[in-house]
């Protein structure tokens, strides 16, 4: 144990006064606040879809936006909890995105069922995925650089949830900007790539958040 004693002595001689990390709820509020500002600025620059007010009379559009907003909120809170070694002892809340994603899939399924007669697909396709990705880059960099300051012991899951959170900002932006009513297109080119990117987050978390 002499090595251990030496190490303890050395660690105790180090500068041990530290600025403690903020509460994860504060952290997630900061991220959500920044995401809100980013969304507002980008929508001001690129413009809201002209039929937005009219679309807010459609139940499924409102449900879709509501659940997307829910994903942003829940993944932000979860990512903040996952940045702490013990998940801030709020394990159930940290794993809440699973329930939110299930609700999201259910909403999309019901919206697709309600899409009768089928609204024709727009002419563009992958451009939407590209647009969401580009819009999500800044939130991705910000959330990951913020999480690196802490000590995640679930770095793969943390990476995945953080990336989902960032991409939900991009998805929200596109839904509020683009005039497009085809749910098939939205599922295929907006949300499926977004969920697939969550898997990339597992890898990214391992690369970026491991300490």
């Amino acid at each position: 144990m002499s090595n251990i004693d030496n190490l303890i002595t050395r660690l105790a001689q180090d500068e041990i006064r530290v600025k403690t990390a903020p509460h994860p709820f504060i952290l997630s509020l900061q991220w959500m606040g920044a995401a809100g500002i980013y969304l507002a600025v980008s929508l001001t620059l690129f413009g809201l879809r002209p039929d937005l007010l009219e679309k807010f009379h459609s139940v499924w559009f409102v449900a879709e936006i509501g659940v997307l907003l829910g994903i942003l909120i829940v993944t932000s809170i979860s990512a903040a909890l996952l940045a702490f070694p013990d998940l801030y002892q709020k394990r159930n809340l940290a794993l809440a995105p699973a329930w939110m994603l299930a609700l999201f899939l259910l909403t999309l399924f019901l919206a697709w069922r309600a899409d009768n007669p089928l609204i024709p697909l727009p002419v563009h396709s992958f451009e939407c995925t590209l647009g969401i990705t580009v819009m999500s880059l800044l939130p991705t960099v910000w959330i990951f650089s913020s999480m690196r300051r802490y000590a995640s012991t679930h770095y793969r899951l943390a990476g995945s949830v953080a990336l989902l959170s960032a991409f939900s900002v991009g998805a929200l932006w596109l839904r509020l900007h683009e005039v497009n009513d085809s749910i098939v297109h939205v599922i295929k080119w907006h949300y499926l790539p977004m969920l697939a990117i969550g898997i990339i987050g597992l890898w990214l978390g391992q690369r970026v958040l491991k300490w």
Partner: peptide
């Protein structure tokens, strides 16, 4: 112990 030292700000 080193990890605890590094992560002490998260407690």
């Amino acid at each position: 112990l080193i990890s605890i030292h590094k992560a002490r700000h998260t407690y």
